[in-house]
Amino acid sequence: MDRLRNTRLPDLPLHRLEVPLPHLLPFAIGTFDTIGPLSRASFPHRHTFYEIVHVTGGSGAHVLDLVRRPVEPPQLCVITPGQVHHWDEADRLTGHVVLFNEDFLLPHADDAAALRLLAGRPGHPAGDQAAPIAALLADMGEEYRELRPGYQNVLRACLHILIARASRTLGRTGDAPDAACGEGAAGEATAGAARDRATELASAFGRLLCEPEGAGRSVGWYARELGVSVGHFQTLVRRATGRSPGSLIRQQQTLEAKRLLSGTDMTVRQISYAAGFSDAAYFCRFFRRETGMSPGEFRARTAGRNHHDPRIESIAAHQDGP
């Protein structure tokens, strides 16, 4: 099984995270080598997942949404779903690569906002957090390899701490993205104006979408709330994220349903209403279409009844082989 799948869109490749049991562990951690060549891809592409990279060695540059930052270890790079990035002339990159889907943020939904802020930079110094982050990543890597009892909870807790420590690296001046570096900075700034508008609107959409009742709202409601036409709203969100507003709403509905199924004793009918559905039967069909399983099956599996190895195949092989 491939670690990352390269799916071709009309304009850019789209990488998806594939793990053997995404409903159990939508997460992976490893080095550039164990994750695979796509972890240091030299061509512009998007992700459907989050990526946190702690670079400890190597040379080249990281380019995120047209902004180029030379590799200067120790350095942090955060990429959120929909952003366009690649590695330029990267050589002998070392460090840890953490990949995870939105599902892995279930216990700490506010972490998504912190990740969006961190992703405003193509790469920045780890500063006095470099040693604690390296130690934390080493511990996470061991948990991922060993799969000891309770490893899912440990990894989720560690990810929450990792995001908090990464946020400290921004400092008081970290609220604004870095300026473009090197040749072509003026051109990138000009090209960035339209991108910034799309990013700003998509971020506002994301904040509204994360509100408790957000998943039940329509595309039209969001467009009106943000003061744009439906057509313009769809264009800008797709430009910023590579996805339609409708698909992001469905993702949020699915995520909210997963949170409630895994973390509460609510009935499926109650959860369907909380996720924005008026018909429980339709919700069940929707959930199966989005996840490949019924709400009941998802609840049973996340209760720990499935004991297959959930790691990315290459990392498991790297650990268990000769």
Rank of each mutant, 00 (worst) to 15 (best):
S294M: 06
R305N: 07
G263R: 07
C158T: 00
R92F: 07
E213N: 04
R68I: 08
L12T: 13
S42R: 08
D196E: 09
R299N: 10
E102I: 06
Q75I: 02
L147I: 05
P177G: 15
A119L: 01
Q270G: 15
T199N: 04
A204P: 03
G150A: 01
P245E: 03
V154D: 07
G182C: 14
L105H: 10
I161H: 10
H96S: 11
P295F: 05
P125R: 10
L93V: 06
T56I: 08
M293W: 03
S203N: 06
R3Q: 15
A179C: 13
L226A: 02
H124Q: 06
P44K: 09
L64G: 12
R289L: 03
L14M: 14
S262D: 09
V78D: 09
L170Q: 08
P122D: 02
F27Q: 01
L226R: 03
L137P: 09
L66C: 13
H160N: 11
R243D: 10
G123T: 06
L236A: 01
A61Y: 11
T34A: 02
P74E: 08
L208H: 05
T199G: 02
S294G: 08
A138D: 12
K258C: 08
M1N: 14
R8T: 14
R285D: 08
L66I: 11
I161K: 11
H85I: 09
M1F: 14
A215K: 00
R305W: 08
E102T: 09
G127D: 13
G184E: 14
F283E: 00
T264F: 08
S39Q: 05
A131N: 12
L17D: 04
Y144G: 02
G187Q: 14
P125W: 12
A119K: 01
Y144F: 14
H54L: 15
E146P: 01
G187H: 13
G36C: 02
V84C: 08
R299C: 07
D103L: 10
G182E: 13
D320V: 14
L147V: 06
F43S: 05
I271M: 08
I133Q: 09
A135Q: 12
G263W: 00
C210K: 01
G276F: 13
R165P: 10
S39H: 06
A300S: 14
L155I: 04
G82N: 07
A176F: 15
